[in-house]
Design a protein around this nucleic acid. Structure first.
Length: 596
RNA sequence: GGACCGGUAGCUCAGCUGGAUAGAGCAGCUGCCUUCUAAGCAGCAGGUCAUUGGUUCGAAUCCAAUCCGGUUCACCA
């Protein structure tokens, strides 16, 4: 049990013992004591002064005395200031904690089993390469999956690949028209970029044709419909749905190029999936559910034959679920896919990592599933995240301001290379690394900086990213945390033969205790991050931990500690800090270097 | 127009189930490397928490209104 929870439970039972008043531990407000007061944790008393008919001072005094008397191994002292009961927890308790956990490589990871969660993320279109926005999605999805796993859940990571539709046909038709049989191999181009280039070529040709038609006297609206290349793309979609062999062949081939490119990117950034769904297999799902919905009266049919649901009673609008021609719309296949996932994996919760522009869509999706009484309904959770914008505003593919994921990753790794080389030379340490180790190090730092940057902000907030400015390495950053880790590892290597274990008690210095208090909060932090689906909680925690350790490190020597006791304690503390950083950064998908 | 999200230091962000004098990082300024990696540490400076009103012992946090920015309300996905 965490210290904070322990404080709450002791307080709840003390209030019951003293005043016969039942109060839930979760109803007691406990904060970390402000540094200017004595104590570790503080109970805010105002909440119950009325019910207990006591003044805050009297209540604090009585409660404090009782708690210290009842739990002498836990509390050593208390003081009451203006309605705040400050409690000090004994050094012996903190030291026992350190002693117990310092060699635990699974420190912070939940051991109880909570449930099963599906996380759908990434979900790319197969007509163009990944960009900066996808990176936020991928890092968030991967991280929240790891966090939920660490909090005791079984995880199924999934991805729905949007591998069919008019956008794919655009790339396909442009390839037929302009490629002369070129392939990624023949042009030495990464497959997803290759296909993306033809998507761009389609749009260029299309724009040109529209312009010509308008010049010939056609209205723009009509020209956009009549442009020959657009009609060709639309025909190709019809042919695809009819399963026309040569279209299928081209579609399969171009998609395979894209997948090869995606695989490379996913490998580089560390995304992986347990189960991949393809829209080409799922786009017809949900039709039977429309029928069931009609029977149940959840849906209704209009005169033209189209099928709708009325959500105005829930503050939303009417939503179509089947066109008058009998074909289904986007949300219908999502309903079908939700059911399919449920049948296949029977998860307790199904998380969709999708941008906030689809907030309405997911609200509707969940509501419809609930009204249909589907077992998957209540578990639907939209992990909505804000767009990544440039200093100049939103990324626009038409204006060529889209930041390519591969390019960005390569740039940041190169930035890391330059900084790292300079730092290592400064310390005359470059020669200690093999070329292979160096390349790995640059990647670890560059990707670490990027992932930390994108994950340190509350997901639901939009964020601004300036690709022209390399990511900072000072302060609240990935490299700062990595550096803290590397320094600790350096000490631990030198002290590999030291005695860690036989600790006898001594008084803790304030900076020692501060690090231990941070360490103790790790499991609670994972719990918060999991409950709120928010990896930034982990990033902030790790930064605070690293900073607390650095402050301690700067002031007190580990190797040349004042006494053998102190050295052992500090070695334990350093090792547990390193382990916690490693585990915590792992939850963000960030590796940590042994030396840097 | 309806719905939803955001507005906290020059910049990027914490804090938001109401609690002590609103916190970090960056940028700016001062110090600290004969001692475990200075990608570090210590300090200074920087705020009408968008505005107005309300709820109460107490509001950045809750409520209402207003202003600003964004998203969405397709027989697109």
């Amino acid at each position: 049990m965490s210290v904070v929870l322990q404080v709450k439970e002791f307080a709840a039972s003390a209030i019951k013992d003293l005043y016969g008043f039942e109060i839930a531990p979760s109803g007691i407000l406990v904060n970390a004591t402000k540094p200017e007061f004595t104590g570790d944790y503080t109970i805010v008393l105002f909440a119950f002064v009325k019910q207990l008919k006591k003044s805050p001072d009297v209540l604090g005094q009585e409660l404090g005395e009782y708690l210290v008397k009842q739990h002498p191994d836990f509390y050593t002292s208390f003081n009451v200031i203006k309605g705040f009961l400050n409690l000090e927890i004994g050094d012996a308790y903190w030291q026992a904690f350190t002693q117990k956990e310092y060699s635990n490589t699974a420190y912070g990871i939940a051991t109880t089993h909570k449930g099963k969660v599906m996380v759908e993320y990434s979900s790319p279109n197969t007509n163009k390469p990944l960009h900066l926005g996808h990176l936020r999605n991928n890092f968030l999805g991967w991280s929240i999956a790891e966090i939920l796993k660490a909090n005791g859940n079984d995880i199924v990571k999934t991805c729905i690949v949007n591998d069919r539709g008019i956008h794919i046909c655009k790339s396909m038709i442009a390839w037929e028209l302009f490629a002369n049989g070129a392939t990624p191999a023949s042009t030495s181009t990464k497959g997803d970029h290759f296909v993306g280039d033809y998507y761009v070529k389609f749009n260029d040709a299309y724009k040109g044709q529209v312009k010509e038609l308008v010049a010939g006297g056609m209205t723009e609206e009509l020209a956009e419909k009549e442009a020959p290349i657009m009609k060709q793309a639309q025909q190709m979609l019809v042919d695809w749905e009819a399963g026309k062999p040569e279209v299928m062949k081209l579609w399969k081939e171009m998609n395979s190029w894209v997948y090869e490119g995606f695989d490379q990117t996913y490998k580089e950034i560390g995304s992986d999936f347990d189960k991949i769904y393809y829209e080409s297999n799922t786009y017809l799902l949900g039709k039977d559910l429309v029928e069931k919905g009609l029977e149940k009266g959840v849906f209704y049919q209009k005169e033209d034959g189209s099928v709708w649901i009325d959500l105005t009673g829930d503050g939303l609008d009417e939503k179509i679920v089947r066109r008058k021609d009998g074909t289904s719309v986007y949300i219908t296949q999502d309903i079908g896919l939700a059911e399919m996932k449920q049948k296949e994996f029977n998860a307790d919760q199904s998380i969709y990592v999708v941008g906030d522009e689809q907030n309405y869509h997911f609200k509707v999706l969940k509501l419809i599933c609930q009204k249909l009484g589907l077992p998957s309904a209540d578990g639907i959770y939209h992990l909505s995240y804000g767009m990544v914008e440039l200093p100049t505003g939103k990324m626009k593919s038409r204006e060529g301001t889209v930041v390519d994921a591969d390019d960005l990753v390569a740039e940041l790794i190169n930035d890391a290379k330059e900084t790292t080389q300079a730092k290592l030379e400064e310390r005359n340490a470059l020669k200690e690394f093999s070329q292979e180790e160096l390349d790995q190090l640059y990647k670890t730092i560059g990707l670490g900086a990027l992932k930390f940057f994108l994950l340190r902000v509350d997901p639901k907030k939009k964020m601004i990213f300036d690709p022209k400015e390399s990511i900072d390495i000072h302060g609240f950053t990935g490299p700062f945390v990595q550096y803290t880790y590397a320094r600790i590892r350096s000490i631990l290597r030198k002290e590999a033969n030291a005695n860690f274990a036989t600790l006898s008690t001594s008084e803790l210095l304030p900076l020692e205790k501060d690090v231990i208090k941070h360490l103790e909060q790790f499991a609670d932090t994972i719990g918060d991050a999991a409950n709120e689906h928010d990896p930034s909680k982990i990033a902030i925690y790790l930064f605070n931990l690293a900073q607390a350790f650095n402050t301690f490190y700067n002031k007190h020597s580990i190797s040349n500690a004042e006494s053998e006791d102190k050295k052992q304690l500090r070695l334990q503390l350093a090792q547990l800090t390193a382990q916690t950083i490693k585990t915590g950064m792992g939850l963000l998908g960030i590796q940590v270097p042994e030396r840097m």
